[in-house]
């Protein structure tokens, strides 16, 4: 299977703090790969590096064969990044925001992209209302719609269901599964172990900037004689 993401001995240092310490992992095309770990483990830093937002201290990171350090413009054409704490332009309507984002992509696909975004967001008539009237959950659904409507080759989702209620979160998980069938590779981070267990084909447990375990949820549960990923996580971290 072809590798969509290749991370080799990645180090990210903020002055004296080493946030990511020589981590390596690969994500195959069409796979849902989960990065899980406690707060400050280095998940968001890793995702931001893959999204071309942060520079690399050392190591190598490739997305679909493009080096994120040397070819960031090429990487941005094929990825879609959903930050954990993302916002949208409050003075726009939901649909206006999707149109604004779609304008950055292929104009021929503009209309279908917006339609797809509207469908994923599933906000009904409220899609035509201003974003500053949306609830937190509605805003998150809109942002997920924005992230997935562009048909990215790689979707990098930081806590995609954060702030969503159970039914909305379930719907988003279903959509994420759906887009991988269309060829999108998904790299996500989450605190929600059950979500990761349900959603991810493979996972990497990251703690204090180091990947401490990697494999399919089943493999890891078997290896640590655990009933779920939460138990695996607790055993590995402790």
């Amino acid at each position: 299977m072809k590798e969509a993401i290749k991370v080799r001995e990645l180090v990210k240092r903020y002055d004296s703090i080493e946030a990511v310490k020589k981590i390596s992992f690969t994500v195959n095309e069409g796979e849902i790969f989960g990065l899980i770990g406690p707060n400050g483990a280095g998940k968001t830093t890793t995702l931001r590096i893959l999204s071309t937002l942060l520079t690399i201290t050392s190591g190598a990171v490739e997305v679909m064969g493009y080096d994120v350090g040397r070819e960031p413009d090429e990487v941005r054409k094929i990825i879609s990044y959903l930050p954990e704490d993302a916002g949208a332009y409050k003075n726009l309507t939901g649909k206006g925001y999707l149109q604004f984002i779609a304008n950055f992509f292929n104009p021929r696909e503009n209309k279908s992209m917006v339609e797809k975004g509207v469908a994923i967001a599933a906000l009904g008539d409220r899609i035509n209302d201003r974003i500053d009237t949306y609830s937190k959950g509605m805003k998150r659904r809109l942002l997920v719609g924005r992230a997935l409507m562009t048909n990215p080759k790689v979707a990098i989702l930081d806590e995609p269901t954060s702030g969503l209620d159970v039914s909305n979160a379930q719907e988003i998980r279903r959509i994420i599964r759906e887009i991988t069938k269309q060829g999108t590779t998904v790299l996500l981070s989450s605190h929600n172990m059950l979500e990761v267990e349900f959603l991810c084909d493979r996972i990497a447990l990251i703690n204090e900037g180091v990947i401490v375990e990697e494999g399919t949820p089943e493999e890891l549960m078997k290896k640590h004689s655990a009933e779920n990923i939460e138990e695996v996580f607790m055993r590995v971290v402790e």
Partner: peptide, 14 residues
């Protein structure tokens, strides 16, 4: 402030 910068910086635009 509106947390739109990260999204903007990851869009396919120089």
């Amino acid at each position: 402030e509106n947390k739109t910068l990260e999204t903007l910086l990851t869009l396919p635009v120089k």
